[in-house]
Every structure is written in C-alpha cells, then in structure tokens.
Amino acid sequence: MIGPVRGEWLKAWRSPYLWTVGLLMMLVLLVRGYGLDWFLMSQSPATLPAATIESYKQALAPAAFAQQALGNPGGVTWALEFVLGVLLFGSEYGWRTLAAMLMVGPSRATVFGAKTLVLLAVVVLLVLLRFVTALASSVISAVTLDLPFSLPPAGGVATAFAAACLIAITYASFGALLSLIFRRASIAYAVGLTYLFVFEDRAFGVIAKSSAQSLRDLTMGFPGPNSVALVHNLGGGTGSAVAAANTGSVQAAVVLAVYCLAALGIGCAILVRRDET
C-alpha cells in the first residue's frame, strides 16, 4: 500500500489543479468570512447599526476563528470539496490513466485504498489550512480594528476542526463516487453541482423555512442539512440553519459518516468489479 500511496501523493502534490482548488477555498474564506465584513467595519462604521457592528466584531475576532473556518464558507466550499473528489478520481478517466495504473501491479482494492487515503490527506490538510488562514485573518482583524484578542478553548477548536473534516470528506467522497459511477469528470461535475446548488442549497433551504414538517424531516436524511446542523450546533453560521436546529451534532455526524462510508464502499466495489475499457 505504501508504494501506491507515494505515487498518488506525488501526483497530488504536483497537480496544479489541486493547488488551484485549494487557493479558491482560501479565497472564499478570506472574502466571505473576513474581507467583506472587515471592509465595511474599516471604511464606514458610522453608517452601520450598532447591532450589526457588534455582530461583525464578534465574527472577526480571534475568539470566533474556528466557527468562521467551519461555517462561513458554506456551500461554495463544500462544492469545492466535491470538486477535489472528482479531480482525484474522475480525472483519471479523462486522461485514461486509471487503466495504466491498474496494469502496473497492485490489486484494484489497493489502488482504491491509496487514492482514498491521499484524498483524505489532501482534504484534511486543506481544512487545516483553512483554520490557519482564519486564525491569521482574525489576528489581523483584531490588530487593525482594535478587537479583543482572546482565543477560543482548544477543545472547541478541535471539535470544529473534526466537524469540518467530516463535512469535507463527505463531499469529497461524493465527488469520488460520482466519478467512478459515470467514468467521466465532466458528467460527475454536472450531476454533483446540480444536486448541491439546486437541491441542497435552494430546494432544501426553502423546505427548511416551510411548515411542512414531514418534508423537513425527509431532508434531514441528506448530507447538506446535516452539515448545516453540525455547523449550526458548533456556532458556525449559515443561512438555512433553521431546519437543522432540532438535529443534534452527534446525529448529524453519524449521518455524514454513514454517507462517507457508503460512498467509499460503493466506489471501491465499482472499481474492483467493473471492466475498465
């Protein structure tokens, strides 16, 4: 297993596409999590209501950096995490390199395992980078806007980090699974992003605000609302958190973990059993 993992890591480390997605993640965090609020606070504080200024201060302060890293990027970052999964698995079909790797020697299960381990490592590293970026941004905000400089408890940061990793792995696994099903990165992007933006972001958001309890319960079987619930329960803020208010962190985490395991299990079975033409 070590050899294939090293091979996969070499490919991932040298991939300009993964670096681009990683940079986009940080850009989303900087702009949506800090940049816009910092700009308003620094440029026109007199025109803002006192309550708004207070909420901005709380969000930009170092005490909230873990929540910012966990929750503020929201759906766009989850979509980018989905893209990571497609990049690491689906691109192999476009380049027709998967068949070449399968002919080298390791079993198909080993190839899948190596790719999955590297995908998990990339995802966790990018989440870590997101937390470091959020911490640095919050420190800069505190210095420039004269905010209180207190860090959150380590336990809270660790929980938020674990939750962010679980959510990221869920979406990356989803991307990997769609790539293996369709054997095309392009169609995996089309199906996955349509699901994320049309159903999870819009339809489930509307249902969350509706009074149809049965529909709201139904949506809680999907990854999006459970991710929102996890973020909401850990103090992160997203727009449609209302639907998730009654879902506990443990329940949400279990649902996401089941999705991860199912996606990876089905993906492995597909790769091991299917003809590669």
């Binding site: 050899g3 091979g7 070499l10 490919k11 991939s15 380049w95 068949a99 070449a100």
Partner: peptide
C-alpha cells in the same frame, strides 16, 4: 501498453515514471 500510452500531462516524463515505480514497488 494498451492502445495509446496514458500519462499525467502536468508531470514530466521522469515524474510519470516515478509514479509507475511507486505503484510497482
């Protein structure tokens, strides 16, 4: 080599073979 050879376009020739070497132990 079945049909056309398939490698990673963003890697050098040497790095492509390094990937193969890692895979093959």
């Amino acid at each position: 080599v079945i049909e056309n050879p398939a490698f990673y376009t963003y890697l050098s020739g040497r790095d492509n073979l390094r990937v193969v070497a890692h895979y093959g132990g």
